[in-house]
């Protein structure tokens, strides 16, 4: 750098040089299509299963062929029997997830932000967390009856804890130095929460939501097995009672698809919201 730089206005000095320089990395790299390597093994296993079932090596009354399972789903869809089951299970998970994550968001934000609230509330919540959640089932049924309320509340309890823990640790982990930047620009209260705490907490919160959703799917099965006359969990019990393994497998497959799809939705949302992250994972986008 020559001494003349000092006397020139910085604008003229500086703008010319970086113009020629490319960005260190393009903000969004073009995504190349990749062979879905993860699909190879499941497909091979399915093919093997189909062959073994058709040749009679597997007893059809215990493990029917995949084609028969798919046929069962198609039949359920054709007769229209499938949709109420599917819809009700989705509605229960949706309601339980909404309820559980809302409560967890309120309490997690509070205990993460305020040390006093943490000292007061967290020990109790951690204690409750260690109760195996299925132990609540008899109590919930006693309190709220066998219908929807007890099921939704049970799912909400399952969703609550991962979201609560994720958010609380996220808020606690917010970089003090970034909070200070906010303070330096005289942000306080809600503005500081919205512009610093919220985005800084988002990664941990989204992980919590994904874990919570996974538990939500687990708990809907428990709730529906305990007592329901509709829902995918009911199909499981129904298949067992009537000795139709294809119905059980169809239900399991539908749970897998629904769980995977909803999680993929949250994962997609996470990627979109966290494009800024400088982490090992973000490179693979």
């Amino acid at each position: 750098m020559s001494d003349s730089t000092l006397t020139l206005p910085p604008l003229a000095v500086r703008t010319a040089a970086p113009a020629a320089r490319p960005l260190p990395a393009a903000p969004r790299a073009p995504r190349r299509w990749q062979w879905p390597l993860g699909a190879v093994l499941p497909l091979a296993l399915l093919a093997l299963w189909e062959i073994l079932a058709r040749t009679g090596a597997l007893p059809p009354n215990l493990l029917p062929a995949p084609s028969k399972v798919l046929g069962t789903i198609a039949e359920l869809a054709r007769t229209g029997e499938l949709w109420p089951h599917l819809g009700l299970t989705l509605a229960r998970v949706g309601a339980g997830f909404a309820l559980g994550s809302l409560a967890a968001t309120a309490l997690g934000a509070l205990t993460g932000y305020a040390p006093l609230a943490r000292r007061l509330l967290d020990p109790l919540l951690q204690g409750v967390r260690n109760i195996p959640s299925l132990a609540w089932v008899p109590l919930f049924i006693l309190w709220m009856g066998i219908y929807e309320t007890s099921k939704v509340v049970l799912i909400a309890v399952g969703v609550f804890f991962p979201v609560y823990l994720g958010l609380m640790s996220g808020v606690q982990g917010v970089d003090r130095k970034l909070v200070e930047v906010g303070r330096m620009y005289r942000l306080s209260g809600l503005a500081l929460v919205r512009r610093v705490f919220l985005p800084a907490t988002l990664p941990a919160y989204l992980v919590g939501l994904r874990n919570g959703l996974g538990l939500g799917w687990m708990f809907v099965v428990a709730a529906e097995i305990m007592g329901a006359n509709k829902g995918l969990g009911f199909l499981l019990v129904d298949g067992q009672m009537t000795g139709r393994p294809q119905t059980i497998l169809a239900s399991i497959l539908l749970f897998a698809i629904l769980g995977r799809t909803t999680d993929a939705g949250l994962a997609w949302l996470s990627r979109r919201l966290l494009r800024w992250q400088d982490t090992h994972g973000s490179e693979q986008g």
């Binding site: 910085p10 604008l11 000095v13 500086r14 970086p18 260190p24 800024w276 992250q277 400088d278």
Partner: peptide
């Protein structure tokens, strides 16, 4: 003025 006109849209990590 600080010579970052072309980097307005970049993320800090870059």
């Amino acid at each position: 003025r600080v010579g970052l006109a072309d980097f307005a849209g970049a993320w800090p990590r870059q």
